[in-house]
Write a protein that binds this DNA or RNA. Structure first.
Lengths: 166, 166
DNA sequence: CGCAGTCGCGAAATAATATTGCGCACAGGC
DNA sequence: GCCTGTGCGCAATATTATTTCGCGACTGCG
């Protein structure tokens, strides 16, 4: 099973850093029950192994004047790999698009977008997204409110699975 | 306009910490062009003012054995506030649900879910989500791949807007 | 068994960073 | 022009990060 290469301390470290990425190494070491040097070594190893992709401050878009958040469901004409990649690259170039996930089923892509106001988003939608090559249809839904926004992985589920196997 | 209470240095700090939340204060101060003590004071102020909600390690779910990521589009029978809130609370209690956004339009909620494998997700879908009170329909789409996953806010867009106004 | 190799820990020392206290400079109001 | 509030930088101190080193536990093999 995946995640088995990690021992319980490693998983604990990941869980703690997911919850608070700016925790000092001393505090982290205290929480996971080892001393600081091996704790730091483990963190570095986890970073280099790709378990930790990075650290980010969680900034509220609305506080910064990005009042509008939108999910856009996109359908393309062609699903040839070359065309999929081209669309993905265009999404990477649009700053208002924060996430771009390719899906199975009817919808080819779902995009999470932000914008300062509705008219900015409308401009992007009409002049950018909808008019982009290969785009067949775009359905958008405004986010009214966000009830939950947890990062990453539910470590409690992971631990439960592992203890069941062990 | 929102975000106006922040001066260019504050916005720069937010941008840097969004990109790398574990940057040392010394390095951050160097990048934004002030000395360390006032830089730290600004960070603390931004945290307390709610511009920074927290810091999180960005952990790859797949590396930890969460192979399945799903977007679930949920429609409810009743959109009365009490029923919306009840559904949101249920989402908060489901660890596999990482995000829950209320939308306008046909779909009432979109959920971002993770699971170790498809059967775990199916169980959650049938026994949890679909059979929950007030849920009218659930459409799910598996994430094939993720082309972009940027956190938070596009600061370049923000700066462009502010310079246009100024 | 017993022995060598490997691995990870922790203590101690050192380097770097965070944090506090204080004095100075600038801007706006009177 | 003076006074006050705001925010800076410098210097000192506390805390943390990082390296180095040696020890003990486990494992695989003779």
């Amino acid at each position: 099973m995946a995640g088995t290469k990690l021992d319980p301390i490693d998983r604990r470290i990941l869980a703690e850093l997911q919850a608070d990425g700016r925790m000092t190494n001393v505090e982290l070491a205290r929480r996971v029950g080892i001393s600081a040097p091996p704790c730091l070594r483990r963190v570095r190893t986890l970073e280099e192994a790709g378990y930790i992709r990075g650290y980010h401050a969680d900034i509220d878009p609305r506080e910064l004047g990005f009042e509008v958040q939108v999910f856009a469901m996109v359908r393309l004409h062609s699903q040839a790999e070359v065309d999929l990649s081209a669309f993905e690259q265009r999404c990477r170039d649009w700053p208002l698009v924060r996430e771009c996930h390719m899906l199975n089923g009817e919808i080819d892509f779902i995009l999470k977008c932000v914008a300062p106001d509705l008219s900015t988003f409308q401009s992007f939608l009409t002049e950018g997204l909808t008019s982009a090559a290969n785009v067949a249809s775009v359905k958008t839904s405004l986010v009214i409110r966000c009830a939950k926004d947890e990062p990453g992985v539910p470590f409690d589920v992971l631990e439960a699975r592992l203890s069941r196997t062990a």
